[in-house]
Design a protein around this nucleic acid. Structure first.
Lengths: 207, 207
DNA sequence: CGCGTTATTGAGCCCGTTCAACTATTGTGG
DNA sequence: CCACAATAGTTGAACGGGCTCAATAACGCG
């Protein structure tokens, strides 16, 4: 699991977005450095894809029928990112702290969760501070809302770094917007296999 | 001037981004409707570009030398949008109300302003409520901060819908991050002329 | 001018922050 | 394995920034 981060002059940090294992990070143009960096919350393997490479691949295989496939997939990936950012803008701009945390837990459940009957169990690979920096809050607030959710039995916290949601629909009903369900893994894997062999790969590990 | 907007079930609104006249709105995929809509704050002409059209254009003119031009430009446009969203995420997540408003005024100065010597004069085509919904605040807060900036002589408000900044650098020094300077109009116009004749155009007017 | 809309200003409140103390967990060396 | 330290998380008290509600003022338009 990785985070795209931005820092302010006085040390404040904002996490722009989170990516689950198997996901595609995008928006890092090699040219102008926007001051953003990537942090990994667990051991991670990164593959870097130059847009040029994809474009060349596209040009080489320019059969009128399927020549657009790579480009179309790339657009779809970027579009997903745009959608994620959009919904996170709403989260930061218009949701209160409880709504933010609730949405976060449900989103993690969708992206990382293991279904156990109706419930969902999630192993959380990040600290309270990381969550806070993602949601525009601080660690104490995260902690307080977690205990509130625990007391109301909407969420269980078996350990410090895991939780489970007995009735996801009931939690979702507390939100003023549907939980965004974005891309399925199938699409992603199709895309990745299309690019197989066209990415320069290397390892990156943190901690 | 247009705004991309999203609404919550209880009426809250968040403006995701603003586009100046001559700019390129993007991220509206025709397929799944994400619940977003576009509002125009002044008389506006919209041109709709189907990605398919651009892709076809690309395929038709697939001379190995310049065939990538359209696609590359499209990527650059989407990337600009991604950068804008990124910096706005930081704004909503980690800046306090004064910083948000200051950044907003400087951004408008860059994108809409008429330089007058060292100063910049800006005609603002949106209401306090629109500004509030863009910055994740409410109208009263916007108003209060405007009067505070006026009293400190950092900003002048000759009329309800215009302002001018005597010393932009001094204002900028109050921010914990550089004001993002994104795309120049030259690039945009180059791109638009590339697409000339390939966009289905229609008029859209509000109010 | 008179009316409706938009903006400003004030008083009071509440949510989320800050600061501090405490608890629980993880890791390390003896 | 335990002792201990370092880190991460929780909880409480008090503060304050931004919100809510209400009244007033300024503008735009017939």
């Amino acid at each position: 699991m990785t985070a795209m981060c931005v820092g302010l002059a006085d040390g404040r940090r904002q996490i722009l977005g989170l990516d689950v294992p198997g996901g595609i990070i995008c928006g890092m143009s090699t040219g102008q450095h926007s001051g953003a960096w990537i942090e990994a919350f667990c051991d991670t393997v990164l593959c870097e894809l130059e847009l040029q490479v994809a474009a060349q691949f596209q040009a080489d295989n320019a059969a009128p029928s399927d020549g657009m496939e790579v480009i179309a997939n790339l657009f779809s990936v970027i579009h997903q990112r745009l959608e994620r950012y959009s919904s996170h803008l709403v989260t930061l701009g218009r949701l209160d702290s409880t709504e933010r945390v609730t949405l976060f837990l449900l989103d993690m459940a969708i992206r990382l969760g293991r279904p156990c009957g109706q419930a969902v169990f999630v192993e959380l690979p990040m600290t309270r501070e990381d969550i806070a920096d993602y949601l525009g809050l601080n660690t104490e607030t995260i902690s307080r809302i977690f205990t509130r959710l625990k007391k109301s039995k909407l969420v269980q916290f078996p350990s410090r770094s895991s939780f489970s949601i007995p009735e996801p629909e009931r939690l979702e009903r507390r939100l003023p917007l549907p939980v965004p369900h974005h891309m399925s893994l199938d699409q992603l894997e199709t895309f990745l296999s299309t690019l197989h062999g066209h990415a320069a790969s290397f390892d990156g590990v943190r901690q």
